[in-house]
């Protein structure tokens, strides 16, 4: 299988935030209907009916993501989380994975010395990391 090194954020979205001293990062695979929804939002006519090939590609991307995201790998991609307890919760219905990092924010937003005390940027940091991705998952013109 050919792999290629690209930023995780190429087809994976992320949103991060705080809960006391813990941070969470939700990662999701771009929905197969997203391109049409965006067209509509711009006032351009688009077909919202699902495209089997796009669905298959999104499913393949999610299978890769769910396998890829482990506590161990997060500790490597975000070295500031080394040694921290990390939970990974798959949400296949949303093609998403939620990552909870315990203690990364000390004892909460008011107390932590972290430059980003609410972990607002943690998701964007993760998206910017280069990861090895099967090349077939990148080209949405190819059948998955």
């Amino acid at each position: 299988m050919t792999t290629t090194s690209v930023p995780l954020g190429l087809f994976i979205g992320a949103r991060s935030g705080d809960k006391g001293g813990n941070a969470n990062v939700g990662l999701w695979v771009v929905d197969p209907g997203e391109a049409a929804a965006v067209e509509l939002a711009h006032g351009v006519a688009a077909d919202l009916r699902s495209d089997a090939r796009q669905v298959a590609l999104a499913d393949a991307r999610y299978a890769w993501l769910a396998d890829f995201v482990t506590a161990e790998r997060i500790r490597i991609l975000l070295p500031e989380t080394a040694g921290m307890e990390i939970d990974v919760h798959p949400l296949p219905n949303l093609r998403a994975v939620n990552i909870v990092i315990h203690g990364v924010l000390g004892r909460g937003v008011a107390e932590t010395s972290r430059i980003d005390p609410q972990a607002k940027g943690l998701g964007e940091h993760l998206r910017a990391r280069l990861v090895d991705i099967p090349a077939a998952l990148l080209d949405d013109r190819l059948p998955a």
Binding site: G13, R15, G17, D18, K19, N24, G26, L27, W28, V30, D31, G33, E34, A37, V38, A41, D87, H89, L91, L94, A96, N98, V100
Partner: peptide, 19 residues
Amino acid sequence: GMVTVGTVTAQLLYEVGGP
């Protein structure tokens, strides 16, 4: 702005823990 499956998914995942 816009409301898409993407923008709603993003917010569903904000400040959550387990299922």
